[in-house]
Write a protein that binds this DNA or RNA. Structure first.
Lengths: 150, 150
DNA sequence: TTGACAAATGATAAATAATTTCTATATTCT
DNA sequence: AGAATATAGAAATTATTTATCATTTGTCAA
């Protein structure tokens, strides 16, 4: 696992960036969860370890990590973004009740993309499948989480 | 076609709303296109027929029509909403180059939803499939259209 | 048709709130 | 150590969306 961090460090440095405590912790916190936190949730978590980190730093690092392809930004509704470490193609289940986002390792059929390409005549680069429903989590997240459009 | 408008009128009145020129034109403009305009685009189009209509009225009516289930609001990215008349289940192709949204009459396999329900153990109410790629439209829409996240 | 009341409009101002920017100071890496 | 990059803290931004309110319009009953 050490080599993973090493190669990560190398990648960051090669891009002209530096590996700071703040950047590392943002990435670590995002790596150890699969609950697709918002920027403010990431800020709260990182703050437990780096009490003086500022919101701007979290945003800046999320942006940087996104540029490096290490982090993905997800938008469900237009109020805020959610973030996840980039772990390749997968899809999501979004709870209409509490706003939680879950990973699914379902692989969408190639057929579907081909069908879309045929029908449109356009080049289809990507296909996202999102399932909506209600999860069984007991505690609701805070209100702003529930503001899923439609 | 007259009966369709009649039944629409009835539906609106039964809900305690009134059918105004402004409301009718907003719905008409949205009905005669399938290009998923933003609120400001709808405003521009409606203004060609009702030069004195205000932005607030367009927003108010989009909201009302959404409540009545006649209009759907779509969010790709968090900057603005797009609107379409509610014509039942269908999916979308989103151009990563110009931001245009196209309708697709592809029906996602029931299997996929069942698979998602099985994997999550949750009730899956809806499934949205979005295809991303590049369309062949010559003229680009204005810049704000291109701000598709990711 | 008319009148009355509630709902909708126009014009403008205000809110919303996530994200970005600013700047002096601190940290990283060679 | 030195140059470049990053940070903290706070303020600014951005543009969509909502609220306000006096005036107008739609609906319905008489």
């Amino acid at each position: 696992m050490k080599s993973a961090i090493e190669s990560l460090n190398r990648k960051i440095r090669e891009s002209g960036y530096r590996m700071t405590k703040q950047r590392a912790v943002v990435l670590e916190e995002l790596s150890k969860t699969n609950d697709h936190p918002r920027a403010d949730e990431i800020y709260q978590r990182v703050r437990r370890r780096l009490p003086n980190i500022s919101f701007g730093t979290v945003y800046r690092n999320l942006k940087t990590l996104k540029e490096l392809g290490l982090v993905r930004e997800l938008n469900y509704g237009k109020k805020f973004s959610r973030f996840e470490v980039n772990i390749g193609k997968h899809h999501h289940f979004i709870c209409l009740g509490c706003g939680r986002v879950y990973d699914l390792d379902i692989v969408p059929s190639r057929k579907l993309c081909e069908e879309a390409a045929q029908k449109t005549g356009f080049e289809v680069a990507d296909c996202r499948v999102e399932f909506y429903g209600y999860c069984d989590a007991k505690e609701k997240r805070n209100l702003s989480d529930t503001e899923i459009d439609e």
